[in-house]
Amino acid sequence: MGESVAAAVNKFFKVNKLDKKILMMSGISAGFGAAFGAPIAGTVFGMEMVAMGKLKLEAFVPCLTASFVGHYLTTVAWGHKHEEFIIQIVPKITITTFIIVILLSVLFSLISVLYCQLRHEIEKYLIKFSGKTI
């Protein structure tokens, strides 16, 4: 929803390409911060989704601001309470848990790379198929 609002603003004000990307990133960040109550994660997520692995540092402040505004609007203005997760048991740090964490980290990073590559290939196919940019 945040990205949709940013797209509408882009059409209305006819902004340049760089500002359009920053507005998209800010819209995604605001939506993530509002929906999940995690404005820092929303900032990073918004910057990652549009840039796809190439973080634009000039978008950091607008994304951070939008994410915190979205978060505080939902919690303060509308009174919504986000879910809080409390870690009740912390596993012992052993060689086994360390190895498991390293292996899972590698696996999840490979899945992330696969997702990004798949998204790029689908975008290329859709551009070729439709003749329009996304």
Rank of each mutant, 00 (worst) to 15 (best):
M1W: 12
G2F: 07
G2W: 01
V5G: 09
A6R: 04
A7C: 09
A7Q: 13
A8T: 09
V9D: 03
V9M: 15
K11F: 08
K14G: 07
V15Y: 01
L18D: 08
D19Q: 10
D19I: 11
D19A: 09
K21I: 08
I22D: 03
M25D: 00
S26M: 07
A30S: 09
F32Q: 00
F32A: 03
G33F: 04
G33M: 01
A34G: 12
A34W: 02
A35K: 04
F36M: 09
F36K: 00
G37E: 05
A38G: 04
I40M: 13
G42C: 03
T43V: 02
T43C: 13
V44S: 03
V44Q: 05
V44L: 15
F45V: 11
G46M: 00
G46F: 00
E48D: 09
E48T: 02
V50N: 03
A51P: 03
G53P: 05
G53E: 02
L57I: 13
L57R: 11
A59F: 01
F60S: 01
V61S: 06
C63G: 05
A66F: 06
A66H: 02
S67V: 02
S67D: 03
F68L: 12
V69Q: 05
G70D: 04
G70F: 05
H71G: 00
L73R: 00
L73A: 12
T75M: 05
T75V: 12
G79M: 03
G79R: 03
K81S: 13
H82N: 08
E83P: 06
E83F: 14
F85G: 01
F85K: 08
I87T: 15
Q88V: 14
Q88W: 12
V90H: 15
K92P: 06
I93S: 09
I93H: 07
T94L: 00
I95Q: 08
T96D: 09
T97R: 02
T97Q: 10
I99K: 09
I100V: 14
V101H: 08
L104H: 07
L104V: 10
S105W: 05
S105P: 04
V106A: 14
V106T: 07
F108A: 10
S109E: 15
I111W: 03
S112E: 13
L114I: 13
L118F: 15
L118D: 08
L118P: 01
E121G: 08
I122H: 08
I122A: 12
K124R: 11
Y125C: 03
F129C: 07
S130V: 07
G131T: 06
I134M: 13
